[in-house]
Design a protein around this nucleic acid. Structure first.
Lengths: 243, 243
DNA sequence: CGACTTCTTGAGGAGACTCAAGGGTGGTGG
DNA sequence: CCACCACCCTTGAGTCTCCTCAAGAAGTCG
């Protein structure tokens, strides 16, 4: 699991060679295991680090003064956590384990050295960051410009695409370790309203959602509701044909 | 203007040396002048490039199938435009001139070479990208978790901070080349509702807003309404003390 | 001067929120 | 083994924010 998961995040851009993978793994601390509900690092913590999620699910979120909380993103095995915090003195978001997880920390100082020793990894991290920016832009659009049903549908569609990328055997059913409270914090609605929204999706035979098991019944309708734009990733020029 | 503006964007992280600035400018095409309302590049255009905004204001936005439009970000002199698109086959956003502007394009192929020749610039671009991710995260929180007044207040506060960074002489009055329609597209409300929100801010003596000239009357109240988190930027370790 | 864009105001309606309460499930301790 | 607690899901009722439709006023450019 360890080996495969760590490389998944890079595959959209064509993958790394063995040398680069070795370089990257050399920076990572030994994997730690944390239980469900554990806080990897808390919003406001000084000198934030970057992490590699080796197994399990995490969520990163930002607390709002009024008591609310916004989930920024849900992470799966192979994702890099906490990158945005590298530009800040204090961690901007809280990272919480949604399931039991395995993570390793990446030494910041060594990461910077890597920009000199492995420009190819630097390019990759740069590109991943741009991809994440587009992801955030699309979430902004979804939340600012569409109603409750579309927002919830968009979350399901994106999670499904992401899960399929990591676990290709998944088809229409998936386990999602999110409570309705989490979902509400993802889409910017209240728990009560999210509950009613899900029930509408059930009534309309778009999906079933029991406990934490989601089954998509009507893919077409779900994608129509989600209103997500089509995005095609691009590799850096010099890689064209080398992979 | 040209010289100063191009370096502004880098200053939060300590600034570049003359050699790095020369490297970066060598990549840029000769500056082009475009009139107000011009489209620098359109959403969906293939092979998106990066641009350096030398003078004027631009806005990047994403169209929604239902006819709406979401403004992702407003740019000032010294900003880099279109970076997120580098990871995509097609441009994710439309970049439009809010005023007459001066821009130059940055050659993508040369940019990648720079990752090998000038790792320090690569680090800087990487860090700027992380900063932008945090910026987007904070916007997501504002729009998903706060009401109309707070969202509008947050836009004003952020614009003011940004303008002060570029034009330190600005105090409480500033020229903002945004229509109420633009503002509505930034905060995810309708034009009508934004209008009523601004009028409430006027009634409460928080600010005045005539034509495109904004004057902040009550900074404290505006910042309270905006509910923006405090963020402190951080420079990469090896720069500590070198600048 | 006319056409267009921008701002403003009114009235009615829908989506989302708040407050409130009840039921199911799993874990913990007596 | 059962009682209790914590967490999660569900439902009801009333309210308010924000939207839609509509139209008029004011400013701007050719």
């Amino acid at each position: 699991m360890d080996e495969r998961a760590a490389t998944v995040r890079f595959q959209p851009f064509g993958g790394l060679g063995p040398a680069e993978i070795a370089d990257l793994k050399a920076l990572a601390t030994p994997p730690r295991h944390l239980p469900k509900g554990a806080i990897v690092r808390h919003e406001g913590d000084p000198d934030p680090k970057m992490y590699l999620l080796i197994d399990g699910w995490t969520a990163s979120s930002i607390a709002v003064p009024n008591g609310n909380s916004q989930v920024i993103k849900v992470h799966l095995a192979g994702d890099m956590l906490g990158m945005p915090g590298l530009a800040m003195e204090e961690a901007p978001d809280t990272i919480r384990a949604l399931t039991p997880i395995t993570v390793s920390m990446i030494d910041t100082r060594a990461l910077w050295r890597l920009f000199t020793s492995s420009p190819r990894i630097a390019e990759l991290l740069f590109l991943i960051s741009q991809e994440e920016r587009v992801f955030l832009m699309d979430r902004l659009v979804s939340i600012a410009q569409t109603g409750g049903i579309s927002r919830v549908a968009a979350v399901i569609v994106r999670l499904h695409r992401k899960i399929v990328r990591v676990f290709p055997s998944v088809t229409d059913s998936m386990e999602i370790p999110l409570t309705q409270t989490d979902l509400a914090d993802m889409v910017g609605l209240t728990l009560v309203h999210v509950n009613r929204t899900i029930q509408k999706l059930r009534r309309d035979k778009v999906l079933t959602w029991v406990h934490q098991s989601v089954k998509i019944l009507d893919f077409g309708e779900l994608e129509t509701l989600a209103q997500l734009p089509v995005r095609t990733l691009r590799a850096p020029p010099q890689w064209k044909g080398t992979q």
